[in-house]
């Protein structure tokens, strides 16, 4: 047991904090500790979790990506136009188009990083500006409201009326999110490719000497994030029932904060899907709780920023100092 806690310290710390917050919110508000609210939380966090697991893969491989959120905007816009031109399409064609577009945009980043040796933060800041600038230029900032019906109609996979008359729903975004989370988990923990990604992020030179294909690693990591971004873009359009070109602008930094809060390391080799999901959930639970407590929405972000700042400060200083047995256990 100690071994598990030790190797997943961040995840357990996050879980503990989430439980504490939840306990507090359950006592402070009536609505928080209801099934309905829990499912609401899942529904609203789905898009961010999809982004987060994609970004996690890039961080594990030692890169960083700033462009994925605007790439998702590009994907949803182009997909909407394409779907209209092919006469509507359906979920299958929609997902295929979104996936292909997303992977292509990710591959552009990988090409710049691998082939031309531009470091990932520089390359993706450049593509961030290119993707967003071109999107806004060609669309003139005009939103698309007449999306195909299948895309805008809510898909409820499970619903149940509670005793108090409220409805519990699981919607399509949750299913897609769960699929993405499981797929990413399988990729990075159960396949040799995933372990190669960890090894490459942990010690690139060592990985190279073992004959790991460095270029393939970059394309897989950024391609995976592209795939997730494409899917998230489509799902976000479905959730919002419209395509607004700058709707996802700025989302990249929020997601980055959540993923790193979940234990991923800038620099590579570290991070888990569980931590990543908990990171996103912690932020949405806090937001949800503050909302239910009647705190002004304008104060949310301030409080969340303060929480992240404190969390980062603490996670870098005292976990080891607070829990010294964890270190000693390892040092025999």
């Amino acid at each position: 047991m100690r071994k598990i806690i030790q190797s997943h310290a961040t995840e357990f710390a996050l879980l503990a904090v989430i439980l504490l917050i939840s306990l507090f919110l359950s006592l402070a508000t009536e609505r928080f500790f209801t099934l309905g609210n829990a499912f609401d939380l899942l529904n609203t966090s789905s898009v961010n979790i999809i982004f987060a697991v994609g970004l996690l893969v890039v961080l594990i491989a030692g890169g960083i990506d700033i462009s994925f959120a605007v790439a998702a905007s590009v994907v949803q816009y182009v997909a909407a136009l394409l779907l209209e031109s092919i006469g509507g399409g359906g979920w299958i064609s929609g997902l295929v188009i979104a996936a292909v577009l997303g992977v292509s945009l990710g591959a552009i980043n990988a090409l710049l990083i691998h082939r031309f040796k531009i470091i990932s933060i520089v390359a993706t800041i450049a593509t961030f500006n290119i993707y967003f600038g071109l999107l806004m230029f060609f669309t003139r900032g005009v939103s698309i409201y007449n999306l195909p019906d299948w895309l805008t109609s809510r898909v409820i996979l499970f619903e149940h009326e509670m005793a108090d008359g409220s409805w519990v729903e699981i919607t399509l975004p949750v299913l897609v999110m769960v699929v993405c989370v499981i797929a990413t988990w399988v990729l990075i923990t159960r396949t040799t490719t995933g372990r190669q990604l960890y090894a490459f992020g942990d010690n690139p030179e060592g990985a190279r000497r073992f004959g790991i294909n460095v270029g393939a690693m970059q394309f897989i990591a950024f391609g995976w994030l592209g795939l997730m971004a494409g899917i998230a873009g489509l799902i976000q359009a479905h959730y919002a029932q419209e395509v607004v070109p700058n709707a996802l602008y700025g989302r990249e930094l929020d997601v980055l904060a959540a993923v790193v809060l979940g234990g991923a390391r800038l620099g590579g080799g570290k991070g888990t899907v569980l931590g990543c999901v908990l990171g996103v959930l912690m932020i949405s639970i806090t937001q949800n709780g503050l909302n239910l407590m009647g705190v002004s929405p304008f104060a949310f972000k301030m409080i969340i920023g303060a929480i992240i700042l404190v969390a980062i400060t603490l996670s870098n200083t005292s976990i080891e100092r607070l829990l010294p047995f964890m270190r000693e256990g390892a040092r025999r």
């Binding site: 930094l253 929020d254 980055l256 904060a257 790193v260 800038l266 002004s296 304008f298 104060a299 949310f300 972000k301 301030m302 409080i303 969340i304 920023g305 303060a306 992240i308 700042l309 980062i312 400060t313 996670s315 870098n316 200083t317």
Partner: peptide
């Protein structure tokens, strides 16, 4: 925070950014 905890500056300044944005929006509604 950066000097004493060796936390990554991207994260520290990112959370400061989120905090200040929230603070500003809170103050100006």
């Amino acid at each position: 925070v950066i000097a004493y905890t060796k936390a990554h500056p991207i994260l520290v300044s990112l959370s400061m950014m989120i905090f200040l944005r929230g603070l500003g929006e809170f103050l100006t509604r």
